[in-house]
Nucleic acid binder design. Structure first.
Lengths: 146, 146
DNA sequence: TGCATTTAGATAGCACACTATGTATTTGGA
DNA sequence: TCCAAATACATAGTGTGCTATCTAAATGCA
């Protein structure tokens, strides 16, 4: 019975490790603007100015509904989003970026671009494309979160 | 100013997404044995029977010391590890797998192997190697956590 | 030798992920 | 039309990660 296990040869270990390293890489720049990583998918989903429901945002960010509820609560606490009644459905609210939230978009975009750039600094453009393509295929194999 | 952002082209988003998908993939099998993902690096580090300190385990798992302290507290609560005084240093304790913990090793190993196998089912052996190699290079670029 | 520094660990507080479950509203079929 | 089912969201509880900070013990140098 073989119990020796090389965690560096485990995709689960490596994706989670690199994921945490990327979070660490972007957290500082975001914190300088009072932001945190969980906010990012909401910023990008609402960047166009459209108002979306909590459910729409959960699907866009690929997280479960209670996770999105907590993230939106923090963003509202921080004055980054606002909610208004959904005229079509009284169960839900429409969420949009506040003025303050909208003003953070360039900083969010720059932080993401720069963190990804630092992470892939030692990869060629082709290798970077391969890495993203392989990750995408694994994600498709394992299926959508929701 | 370009604010459109494709999160599927972002290494930070994709590694975190695939990481979560892998956690989901392995959580069920582990839960069937009363285990959870955070325990895995400790199982593998202690599999040989050696007793390690909390600091050793934090370095092996690449997490911060308070994270390891909390994980070890849960494992002790679950009867999987035991601690004994370190004769060389009264500040630390030596941690080792209990009998119950040791008996879980085959299940942990099988769960990891099978989850990684399902995730890479649609990749060739060469592609799987490429993916791990590219992730390793990104991890080395971003440096060790501790 | 003695004290300052370093190191090991504990603890508090927070972010962000999950499942399970409850409430209110909408929808759709008998 | 009306009631059952589905849907949107809220809430509780937990796991796993982080930073900041505290105590106790070990270390190292003047």
């Amino acid at each position: 019975m073989e119990l020796i296990f090389d965690r560096f040869a485990s995709l689960g270990y490596m994706t989670n490790l690199v994921g945490r390293l990327l979070i660490r890489e972007i957290s500082g720049p975001l914190a300088a603007h009072g932001l945190s990583v969980g906010y990012m998918p909401i910023f990008f989903a609402l960047a166009a100015g459209e108002a979306l429901t909590q459910r729409d945002l959960a699907i866009a960010a690929q997280v479960e509904q209670p996770t999105m509820a907590a993230t939106l609560a923090r963003m509202q606490r921080d004055g980054l989003i606002e909610r208004r009644a959904n005229p079509d459905d009284r169960r839900s609210a429409l969420i949009f970026l506040s003025e303050a939230g909208h003003s953070k978009l360039p900083a969010v975009h720059a932080a993401a671009t720069e963190a990804n750039g630092r992470a892939t600094a030692q990869l060629s453009a082709e290798e970077r494309g391969q890495l993203l393509a392989l990750l995408t295929r694994v994600a498709e194999t394992l299926g959508p979160i929701s």
